[in-house]
């Protein structure tokens, strides 16, 4: 008994020591600033006026929501929803379609996958630079291609006009996000037992029936998890917008997290933190509702 207890103690000490290095940095450099940021949301904290920081209750939130901060919050909320829903829907559909084509390995499949997965390894900031140059209004290659195809007659200032700025960012975002879904779904598809398809074949199920009755149920947990991860990720992804349009022109491509960035850069930390808290609250509620609605658990 005694030696068992000592063994248990040794085991606990071992577990603690193994976890400590990995926990220490996030506690200091993520969680501590996060809590401080949460506090700042209730202060009129600006770097311009650092000597006069005081509590201001919910003023920052009220300011932002009532558009007193000089920005139409309704428009930003609308842009954010469009940005997330459209990007996600297209990334998911195209990524899934591509996975179905990659499921059966073919000659050169390894090289092909390596090439098409590459954007996943590049930062959103660099991707944004590349697409900004392609969407350029006067010397851009996209205008040239579309004119050669006869789809447009004169140059279009894709990123310079209100009607097309968000759309252009979303095109780049879809292009960027397909590999993630393809990687995850292809792996899941290859894990489905072939016997299931053989059985369905024997029963005379068509390919479409097999897709809905065998494929989708078998990889349901991966589909649900990747969609949730991606919603959170696209929401928190202003990088591409930052390097393509900086949210312009006239906030027409501004989403909530890129708006938060502009607040940080204008040194209005109180308001920036208030926006940050709103984002966290929204995503937490969304995650809970999503998990409840899909009955998704990590054990699935």
């Amino acid at each position: 008994m005694k030696s068992n207890k000592r063994l248990g103690q040794r085991r606990n000490i071992f577990i603690f020591c193994m976890l400590l290095p990995a926990i220490l940095l996030p506690l200091i450099f993520t969680y501590y600033p996060l809590i401080k940021g949460g506090v700042m949301a209730f202060q009129n904290y600006t770097l311009m006026d650092i000597k006069n920081v005081s509590w201001c209750g919910f003023d920052n939130f009220a300011n932002i929501l009532s558009n007193e901060a000089g920005v139409d919050f309704g428009q930003i909320a609308k842009n954010t929803v469009i940005w997330v829903v459209v990007s996600l829907a297209l990334q998911f559909t195209l990524g899934f379609a591509l996975s179905l084509m990659l499921k059966k390995k073919f000659k050169g499949a390894g090289l092909y996958q390596g090439l098409i997965f590459f954007p996943y390894a590049v930062s959103g900031f660099l991707i944004g630079i590349m697409w900004r140059w392609m969407f350029n209004g006067s010397n851009g290659v996209i205008n040239d291609l579309l004119m050669n195809l006869g789809l447009i007659e004169t140059n279009v200032g894709w990123l310079a006009q209100k009607e097309t700025a968000l759309l252009s960012c979303m095109i780049a975002n879809v292009w960027y996000g397909i590999p993630f879904f393809t990687i995850m779904i292809t792996a899941a598809l290859r894990g489905v037992a072939p016997e299931l398809y053989e059985a369905a074949d024997m029963d005379g199920a068509s390919k479409i029936q097999q897709f809905f009755n065998v494929t989708v149920p078998s990889i349901k947990s991966v589909l649900l998890m990747t969609v949730l991860m991606r919603v959170i990720w696209i929401f928190n992804f202003p990088d591409l917008i930052y390097s393509m349009t900086s949210g312009g022109p006239a906030n027409s491509s501004q989403i909530i997290t890129s708006y938060m960035m502009t607040l940080v850069y204008s040194m209005d930390y109180g308001k920036a933190s208030a926006v940050g808290l709103m984002v966290i609250a929204f995503l937490a509620i969304f995650t809970l509702v999503y998990m409840g609605a899909t009955k998704y658990t990590s054990e699935d």
């Binding site: 969680y31 600033p33 996060l34 401080k36 940021g37 928190n236 938060m260 930390y269 940050g276």
Partner: peptide, 21 residues
């Protein structure tokens, strides 16, 4: 959860306090 949550929060909320620190 401590590890997973770090992946969910917008990093910008940490930038200002981090700068101060």
């Amino acid at each position: 959860l401590l590890f997973m949550i770090t992946q969910m929060i917008p990093s910008f909320i940490m930038l200002a306090p981090l700068y101060q620190m």
